[in-house]
């Protein structure tokens, strides 16, 4: 930047008069703001005492789950698209031939490093079979880094824990199908 650049507009700092240079009015002003907030309704939440419930759990991006199919088997087909899409490289999959006659490929090992994850939801977006989803469960804690790497069993147990509260999010909305509520609205 050059000082004589015509695009640069130079502003002069406003001169303070004697009253302003006392700084007392500004201090009183600030104390006024503090006092007003002390008596009005509180904006913050006393978090562990008052737990937070996401307004729409279906839109919240929390801990992952691996969905089960109708027969209770892991729905994932080990296509690696989530691992490919993941910007944090936190998904580790080992694929194998499925032990079931109607399936070809399944994840023998599936792990997500929940500490490394940035909860962007790209894995959910990439999944062609709606097997991986982010739940509204957010306050996960652990004592070691190792226990924050969730393996297949743990991710399936997250599904078992959350399946009643949060139904499969994307099922039925794929293949350009219109959800029933919207159809009714269109008919009206």
């Amino acid at each position: 930047m050059k000082p004589d650049d015509p695009d640069v507009i130079w502003l002069e700092e406003p001169k303070l008069n004697l009253f302003e240079r006392l700084y007392l009015p500004a201090i009183i002003d600030g104390l006024g703001v503090t006092g007003r907030h002390a008596v009005t309704k509180k904006m913050t939440r006393q978090y562990p005492d008052e737990p937070y419930q996401p307004a729409d759990p279906l839109k919240y991006r929390g801990v992952h789950r691996l969905n089960r199919d109708e027969q209770g088997r892991v729905k994932c087909v080990a296509c690696f698209l989530c691992a490919t899409a993941c910007p944090a490289h936190c998904i580790d999959i080992v694929a194998a031939e499925a032990p079931w006659p109607d399936r070809e490929k399944y994840p023998e090992h599936f792990a997500i490093d929940e500490l490394r994850c940035i909860y962007c939801g790209m894995c959910e977006e990439a999944c062609p079979v709606d097997a991986i989803e982010l739940t509204s469960f957010y306050d996960l804690t652990g004592l070691t880094r190792e226990e924050m790497v969730f393996d297949k069993e743990k991710l399936l147990s997250v599904f078992d824990m959350t399946k009643d509260r949060e139904p499969l999010r994307t099922a039925g909305f794929r293949l350009s199908q219109v959800p029933p509520e919207e159809k009714e609205e269109e008919e009206k």
Partner: peptide, 9 residues
């Protein structure tokens, strides 16, 4: 090689 790796890796 079946299911060992996706080729784009």
């Amino acid at each position: 090689f079946l299911y060992k790796q996706r080729v784009w890796f």
